[in-house]
């Protein structure tokens, strides 16, 4: 068995859990889901037993050569009454289950506000992770225990699905849009991460692990990863190298809106509407600039779709978010090549 495991890439959690009937629980939600599941199994199991028992007992009692009484067959009228009875019972059971499951589902999707947001990007066939401070990892996510964590998931190519069985958590990851998922891990350890939506040749290898750590360990881990830059810093470089600054901070004379302080602001659009500039809006502005054109500007911004990776977009967004209103004007040192700026 060790020979098998040593062949595995090191990001796969090497946990052989033996033959179990239930997966481990690593979040409060997992326990609540399991309770509902066990209730369902019991109810469905009972119904199944009833059906099998009916077949066996009736089949034996009324076998062709038995002497059971077959007189006084029931009428259509009785049939209808029995059917309605069965219907009522099943309706009650089903509606009960429906109510329970739905309220749990609402709790799963409308989570509490999170302490930190980690960006996760799926691409054929790996998971790229970016922590708020810029630390990056691939196929592994380190998180602190007992803290509500928000994941912002997206995909760079096809649909993937972000699946943490121990957290009973799954979300499809679609190209071109952001999804938020939250969880609170309550048990330190190493757990599996799967891609659950078929995504091509190596779908089965798009796996990883999530490492839940004590708060202190997590802080330590972060500092050990220290050398990586904050995304806002690398974002600033990308902003230069992709030529965004040429228009948005440029001297080229092109009319483009200032991006300082745009995040979170209501942006007036051509056509009269306004939109709040959130992450999704900024993302769209880069990939599909024509989708929402800012009022008073020509739609000349080129689309960067396909030229810029989702990871880079996240860094640029981080950079844009970091800009205070008119930041670049008062603090030109952040843009080294930008000697002087125009208003």
């Amino acid at each position: 068995m060790s020979s098998e495991t040593s062949a595995l890439p090191d990001y796969l959690p090497e946990v052989s859990k033996g033959l179990t009937l239930m997966p481990e629980q690593a979040s409060a939600m997992a326990g609540r889901i399991d309770t509902l599941y066990i209730a369902l199994v019991v109810i469905c199991g009972l119904l199944t037993v009833v059906v099998f028992a009916l077949i066996a007992v009736l089949g034996y009692r009324y076998r062709a050569n038995s002497r059971a009484n077959r007189e006084s067959q029931s009428s259509e009228h009785t049939h209808r009454r029995v059917e309605l009875g069965v219907l009522a019972i099943m309706l009650v059971i089903f509606m009960g289950l429906f109510g329970w499951a739905s309220s749990l589902y609402l709790d799963m999707f409308r989570g509490p506000s999170a302490a930190m947001t980690i960006n996760v990007i799926g691409k054929q066939w790996m998971w790229k992770v970016q922590h708020p401070d810029g630390t990056r990892e691939i196929n592994t996510i380190h998180v602190p225990v007992d803290e509500t964590i928000n994941l912002r998931v997206t995909s760079q190519d096809v649909i993937h699905s972000f699946y943490l069985p121990a957290f009973r958590l799954k979300r499809d990851v679609l190209p071109g849009s952001y999804r938020e998922v939250w969880f609170t891990a309550d048990n330190p350890g190493v757990y599996r991460l799967f891609c659950a939506e078929y995504c091509g040749s190596y779908h089965a290898q798009m796996r990883g692990k999530i490492v839940v750590m004590e708060q202190a360990d997590y802080q330590q881990w972060l500092t050990r990863q220290g050398e990586s830059e904050a995304p806002a810093v690398s974002g600033a470089q990308l902003f230069q190298s992709y030529g965004c600054s040429g228009c948005h901070m440029g001297k080229t004379g092109i009319q483009a809106p200032s991006l300082a302080g745009v995040f979170g602001r209501a942006v007036p659009l051509a056509g009269g509407a306004t939109m709040i500039a959130d992450e999704a809006y900024l993302h769209d502005s880069i990939v599909q600039p024509q989708k929402h054109v800012v009022a008073g500007f020509d739609p000349i911004m080129p689309s960067y779709s396909g030229q810029i990776s989702e990871g880079e977009i996240l860094q640029i967004i981080a950079y844009i978010k970091s800009l205070e209103p008119l930041d670049w004007k008062t603090n030109p040192s952040q843009n080294p090549t930008q000697g002087e700026a125009q208003p």
Binding site: L40, V51, F52, A101, Y105, P165, L169, K170, Y198
Partner: peptide, 26 residues
């Protein structure tokens, strides 16, 4: 009849939306 019952009732488990989040595509 027997197997359909098992299949159908596990359909009910899938339809219980919170459970499906976990077992979808498994």
């Amino acid at each position: 009849v027997g197997l359909f019952t098992i299949g159908g009732l596990t359909g009910i488990i899938l339809a219980s939306i919170a459970i499906d989040v976990h077992v979808h595509d498994t």
